[in-house]
Design a protein around this nucleic acid. Structure first.
Lengths: 191, 191
DNA sequence: GATCTTATTCGATACATATCTAATTAGATG
DNA sequence: CATCTAATTAGATATGTATCGAATAAGATC
């Protein structure tokens, strides 16, 4: 994985429900709150396992815990279920998921053709920067590229190899030495 | 896993969405249909990988495929999204998920206290049988139990150890020989 | 405070699946 | 029909996570 995504709420929600045992647990909790023991006996798993599953459901906000003595009573958090169901029905919310990770990348989408090539290259530096960053990320770190290879990689996204090569070097995204190029660490990029 | 569950539609649905890449793909498809190539470039994965993810989404009924030449256009199946969202909001539907696998076990739920003990023991043999089966499953296969151990195991669920011990033996769920008991294969249980 | 009960945390293992490259299929094109 | 393109399938590897037994924590009970 390249970027450490903030792992959206919706993703943790789906992950929480993407397992047979946890779906069963949720099912059992629709009726009333239940203790860990009881749940373990009903789904025929050991308590540590159930505990593990309940932790994931809790993390996703799907259950809440009420502690009485040393018995832990878990109950379904119906509100979360309805909230998430609504989110699923809003296209805009879903579209947000498409964002590639880095905050930049969302803007870039507007400049891409269906084939994943650049349609245009905006005039203002502020807008150019994320596009250059996006392009630069297509170079692997820790290896070198000949000028021909750099051109090739650029041309897969835009015909104007000269401009983009020059600008990426200018922004310290790529370094050049004696006909060889390599990608620089993102922390050093100008912007 | 003990029983091969028919892996409910809802489960495949959640599994399909329980991955960052697939959520992104869904996000990208909210706007319009897209080819595999295009999607691969946008999520920055290789085509085979995207193909794999799309297959899962298709399996879950979340996307549909339109083939034109040798380009495959995938589109979002909005209807499925709304259907599933509604299911999530119906408690009864969720409760069904709790069914343990064996068709028996659902009925047993009605006879259990919150602590997982038996509240009552019905009079008709037809109703008693699944409860005995449930109880018998709490004995491990492939080992023997002393009578004291058998009693102990029963008493954890119901005070009347005599009745249950006798009936489980009668139904050929447990075997007895010289003070030792052991669980018999489920295929041989009377019922 | 020793002990029993209920639950969680830890560490190990087994199973599932995401991802890639290479090979294959299916359609389009010269 | 040879070749090219887009997609899928197969096979290998790596990552993730479900499950369990053992150890620990926290509360209740004697």
């Amino acid at each position: 994985m390249t970027d450490a995504l903030p792992s959206s709420e919706l993703l943790t929600f789906f992950k929480a429900l993407a397992h047979e045992s946890r779906l069963k647990l949720v099912g059992l909790l629709t009726e009333r709150e239940r203790s860990v023991q009881e749940l373990a006996s009903l789904v025929e798993l050991k308590e540590p396992t159930v505990s593990h599953h309940l932790a994931m459901l809790k993390e996703a906000g799907l259950v809440r815990l009420r502690q009485d003595g040393n018995t832990h009573w878990y109950a379904l958090e119906t509100k979360t279920l309805t909230t998430r169901a609504k989110t699923m029905l809003m296209k805009e919310k879903l579209a947000e998921l498409a964002v590639a990770g880095a905050s930049d990348d969302k803007a870039v989408l507007n400049y891409l053709t269906p084939e994943g090539r650049l349609k245009a290259f905006p005039a203002t530096p502020k807008k150019r920067r994320p596009i250059l960053a996006w392009l630069a990320r297509h170079f692997e770190e820790g290896r070198t590229y000949s000028e021909a290879e750099v051109n090739e990689t650029i041309e897969r996204r835009h015909h104007d190899r000269e401009t983009f090569r020059r600008e990426m070097v200018g922004q310290k995204m790529l370094a050049r030495k004696g006909g060889q190029y390599w990608r620089l660490p993102e922390s050093g990029w100008v912007g």
